[in-house]
Design a protein around this nucleic acid. Structure first.
Lengths: 129, 129
DNA sequence: CTGCATGCAAAAACTTTGCACCGCC
DNA sequence: GGCGGTGCAAAGTTTTTGCATGCAG
């Protein structure tokens, strides 16, 4: 693949953050480094990097898709109050694939899961009020 | 809430099918019963019924949102080959909420999970070829 | 009658794409 | 220099919304 400054910026930004940004957020954050970059290029590279397995696309939530530069398998949490998306530190749930396969005639290849509730910040804020 | 023929048709259709239709599919299928209904009304009622908890909205997949008239908690499977969305017969995975909460400072209220792989039809078709 | 729900169409939100140009190899 | 990547803008897809009208209560 041919090198491009734009793609490098996008990847570098995604590797540097844990905030699961949308395409628009990625665009805003690399604009200072690439004053002429276009949103279309950001989308093209996010799609490409996702296909290459360098990053992953999170479609599980409401609103625009989010992207995650953390390649290690992990699960996500979304706060019902403020909408924040956080990484969870937990072991793989691969055993649930077997539970799903038990009464199923096809083939289970994997799963995605996400959790919701109140994030640490919103949970503590509620106690105060 | 004020009665409406349109809303009743939408709900009746969703209760009658297991195919997890998109708003567009719902629209097409109730058009014969409501020749003048508009897609906007379908969206409005799907959103309303989701808020009331009568149906649920599935945002986990690529493409347009899907809707599910089956109120019983259950998990979904999506075929990587043909895209079909099926219900899975499996017990609740509520224990995974505890696993998620273990290293997390906020509050875990619930989870969603879906599985992917090959559906019964595509899996058997592949064996033949 | 009163007001919520509808039909219609415009617009918003998100994403992809065609095309000419630019820069890596 | 060739070709893949970019910028730009137009268009595609999905969903929401403003407004005038219509029907349930």
């Amino acid at each position: 693949m041919k090198y491009s400054k734009q793609r490098e910026s996008i990847l570098k930004y995604l590797r540097s953050t844990k905030c699961h940004p949308t395409a628009e957020t990625v665009y805003q954050n690399i604009l200072s480094e690439n004053p002429n970059i276009s949103l279309g290029t950001v989308y093209r590279n996010l799609t490409l990097l996702t296909e290459l397995g360098e990053i992953s696309k999170i479609t599980d939530f409401e609103g625009p898709d989010r992207f995650d530069g953390n390649n290690a398998p992990h699960y996500h949490f979304v706060c019902r109050e403020c909408g924040a998306v956080l990484d969870l530190e937990m072991d793989s749930l691969s055993h649930i694939n077997l539970l799903a396969a038990h009464n199923f005639n096809g083939t289970i290849e994997g799963h995605t899961a996400h959790f919701y509730g109140k994030c640490p910040h919103c949970a503590s804020h509620n106690l105060e009020s």
